[in-house]
Nucleic acid binder design. Structure first.
Length: 421
DNA sequence: TCTGGGGTCCTAGGACCC
DNA sequence: TCTGGGGTCCTAGGACCC
């Protein structure tokens, strides 16, 4: 009988900030989304103040000031690096690991005897804390859904560990576990289930799988089986090839000029090229979108357009050209645009690309230019070298930005931002 | 004034074909 | 007065995740 553990960082982004500033230890801490828009990570102290997940910053600014909340812009370079460190700790504890998200990993624990799993999990937690500084919780169960459930329930325990391998213990926990906290049950499903009087995981477990399928598609049916200890979702120790890739951003200030939009989208196309090259993938079409703020009273506009590229590519300059054509076609003045982005799907490895009959592109030349750019940006930091199209204005300054007013230093990935005593 | 970004999977329905 | 049956493929939209 297999068993899986789910380990995750407590208030992960906030904990990363705390590692590098111990004075934050008992203080409420929150980390903001891109553009400093809303709270996406909160410590327990911050949650106690009533700050919700996704709470817009402008609504809690006073609350934060009054309660001495430490507020950070998101610092993905730091969080990503801390995540890598945590996963290297896990390597020593299990032969099979699935990195599920930036702060969560599933570990196969079948090799640990049932009676020793709680001790194993405590050791895993303590080692992770000691080697990375990040506090975690561990949940154990026979399926991913139950491991997730155990992990969630473990958050409330001082030990930070919960093993739900035993069926009696499991039934007891599930009897009062709200379905909204079950992995795979979102708002819509929660509402449908509430009409049937189903509120707790124990009731969901006993639901007829066929009815679950009618109500919530095959995904819901799998959830029922998983809650019964029947695995339907396997451990993916090798990350599957990604299918799509996107770069989208809200603007720090509303965009009203076409030149700003052109620069912004050119920058996104550049970044898209970097991401595709890093994953060894290419695309033969890009979709560009732009829209006004749905929260504002302004006249609304939301448009998108897909542009074909003759041959699949990951060359930034080619992507910029395609994106620019879309902006040209989509742009209409008189609106206050709040966000734009570039999206691709159907990614292919460049080797598999379909050669175009005409317009054959010079891939070798493009590859040399981008390789040189990537190397410079790797060595001296992102955006050291950028395509001219991403800059504008008389001094070639970027005239649009995303806000990151409160970002901590990239302590672990930039020499010039190392912590000092 | 100020409300994130980036993914995956599933299904229904239309287009099209024989 | 009359209008089949059954496939496949694609897309848009919904739901969910972190």
């Amino acid at each position: 009988m297999t068993a899986l553990a789910l380990i995750d960082g407590n208030s992960f982004y906030c904990s990363c900030e705390r590692v590098f500033d111990p004075k934050l230890e008992r203080r409420p801490v929150i980390v903001l989304s891109n553009n400093d828009g809303c709270a996406v990570a909160r410590t327990s102290e911050a949650k106690a103040l009533g700050i919700k997940m996704g709470h817009p910053m402008f609504q809690i600014r006073d609350l934060c000031r009054q309660n001495n909340v430490a507020v950070f812009s998101s610092n993905y370079a730091l969080y990503g690096d801390m995540s890598r460190r945590m996963n290297s700790v896990y390597q020593g504890f299990s032969p099979d690991i699935e990195i599920y998200s930036i702060d969560e990993s599933f570990l196969d624990v079948t090799h640990v005897r049932p009676g020793e799993r709680t001790a194993w999990a405590s050791d895993l937690r303590a080692t992770t804390r000691q080697w990375t500084g990040i506090p975690t919780c561990v949940g154990i169960g026979p399926t991913k859904t139950l491991a997730k459930l155990a992990n969630k329930a473990a958050k409330a325990l001082p030990a930070g560990v919960l093993d739900l391998t035993d069926e009696c213990v499991r039934a007891e926990v599930m009897a009062k576990f709200p379905i909204g906290d079950v992995w795979g049950i979102g708002r819509a499903s929660q509402e449908k289930l509430a009409h049937l009087g189903i509120e707790f995981a124990g009731q969901l477990r006993d639901m007829d799988p066929k009815l679950a399928r009618q109500l919530m598609t095959v995904v819901g049916e799998k959830t029922i089986h998983e809650l019964n200890g029947i695995p339907c979702v396997g451990l993916e120790t090798v990350a599957p090839q990604r299918k799509g890739c996107a770069v989208t951003r809200s603007f720090g200030e509303r965009v009203i000029h076409k030149s700003q939009m052109e620069q912004a989208v050119a920058g996104y196309a550049t970044r898209l090229g970097e991401k595709l090259r890093r994953h060894g993938l290419a695309t033969d079409h890009v979709t560009v979108f732009m829209h006004t703020s749905p929260f504002a009273d302004d006249p609304q506009r939301s448009v998108s357009m897909t542009v074909d590229i003759p041959e699949a590519t990951n060359d930034s300059l080619t992507l910029i050209k395609a994106a620019r054509r879309a902006v040209d076609a989509l742009w209409k003045p008189g609106f206050r645009y709040s966000k734009a982005g570039i999206i691709t799907q159907d990614l292919v490895p460049p080797a598999e690309r379909q050669r175009a009959l005409f317009d054959a592109m010079d891939h070798d030349k493009a590859a040399k230019v981008t390789a040189a750019m990537d190397e410079a940006n790797r060595r001296w930091g992102r955006a050291t070298v950028v395509p001219a199209a991403t800059m504008g204005g008389p001094r070639k300054q970027q005239t649009f930005t995303t806000k990151f007013d409160m970002r901590s230093p990239r302590f672990t990935t930039r020499w010039d931002e190392l912590p000092r005593c």
